[in-house]
C-alpha cells in the first residue's frame, strides 16, 4: 500500500503550436519516474490549463511552447493561477524560449525554464527537490 502523496503533474501545450514531441516525451519520462501525468493535448487556452490544474489538484504544471508566444501566454496563465488561488503550484516552462526572456518569466513566478537538450532526469530531480521543500 502506498501512503505517499503521489506527485501529480499537468503537462500542457498552450497556444496554437502543435509541436508536441517534447511534451509527450517528457510526459512519458515523468510517468516512468512514478508520477501521475495529466496530459491535455495541444491548442490549450490559458483558461483551460488553469481549470485543469484546479480540478486535478496538481503539484506542478509544465508548459511547453515552441512558437514564441510565451510572452503572452505565460503571464496570462500566471495571472489566472493567482486569481484562482493556485499560486502555490510549481510552474515550469520548456521549448524554445530565448534566455533574454527568462528573467521576466521568473519575475512572474515561473520557477524554471528548461531549454532544448535538457535531460528528463534533470527535470525529474528538479520537481522532486522543489516539491519536497514546499
Amino acid at each position: 500500500m502506498n501512503q505517499d502523496k503521489r506527485i501529480r503533474v499537468l503537462v500542457a501545450k498552450p497556444g496554437l503550436d502543435g509541436h508536441d514531441r517534447g511534451a509527450k516525451v517528457i510526459a512519458r519520462a515523468l510517468r516512468d519516474s512514478g508520477m501521475e501525468v495529466i496530459y491535455t493535448g495541444i491548442r490549450q487556452t490559458p483558461e483551460q490549463i488553469v481549470d485543469a490544474a484546479l480540478q486535478e489538484d496538481v503539484d506542478t504544471i509544465l508548459l511547453s511552447i515552441l512558437s514564441g508566444a510565451h510572452g503572452f501566454l505565460f503571464p496570462r496563465i500566471m495571472e489566472l493561477l493567482k486569481e484562482k488561488g493556485l499560486g502555490d503550484i510549481l510552474v515550469l516552462g520548456g521549448g524554445i524560449i530565448p534566455e533574454d526572456d527568462v528573467p521576466e518569466l521568473k519575475k512572474l513566478g515561473v520557477s524554471e525554464i528548461f531549454g532544448p537538450g535538457m535531460s528528463s532526469q534533470t527535470l525529474i530531480n528538479y520537481i522532486r527537490e522543489n516539491l519536497s521543500q514546499g
Binding site: 502506498n2 503521489r6 510526459a27 512519458r28 515523468l30 510517468r31 516512468d32 519516474s33 512514478g34 508520477m35 501521475e36 501525468v37 495529466i38 496530459y39 491535455t40 493535448g41 485543469a52
Partner: peptide
C-alpha cells in the same frame, strides 16, 4: 497505473 513504476499517463481530458 503502470505496475512497474507506479506512474500513470492520464490522457482522457484530451
Amino acid at each position: 497505473t503502470s505496475p512497474f513504476t507506479g506512474g500513470a499517463l492520464l490522457g482522457d481530458r484530451v
